[in-house]
Amino acid sequence: MTETGGLELVDVLLVEDDPGDVLMTREAFEHYRIPNSLYVVGDGEQAMHFLRKTGEYAEMPTPGLILLDLNLPRRNGLEVLAELKADSELLAIPVVVLTTSQAEEDILRSYSLHANAYISKPVDFEKFVDVIGQIDDFFLTLVKLPSALS
């Protein structure tokens, strides 16, 4: 965890298989000068390894916020969501589903699996950057997260 001005900054885990989206998210973090560390994994299985600190992820921190894409290889986002919300160690971590899908069923299923927010990735890059900025404002600045209480 990074220390800034007495405030403990939470780490952010991005579960995203598309390098383009990863790059755009990084650009947005850069643009808003978001100080939180951004960790990236490429599929649902790696995400679960990261969260349970197994294998190569043994040294990794527990993230304070998860940005989850739904369309993932191996194990899709909804499966990851279901699994981590069924795990008492992990269920407190807020999950923001960030995906291209605008399908009603995806939205409904995500919320019924206790996603904390569902956000469609805007097509427009400017708007995408705005969205990342708003996530930062809300989850990383405004609200108190459980991981910040340690």
Partner: peptide
């Protein structure tokens, strides 16, 4: 989205 976004970038 990729095409549009990176063009904008």
């Amino acid at each position: 989205r990729k095409v549009a976004s990176f063009c904008q970038l």
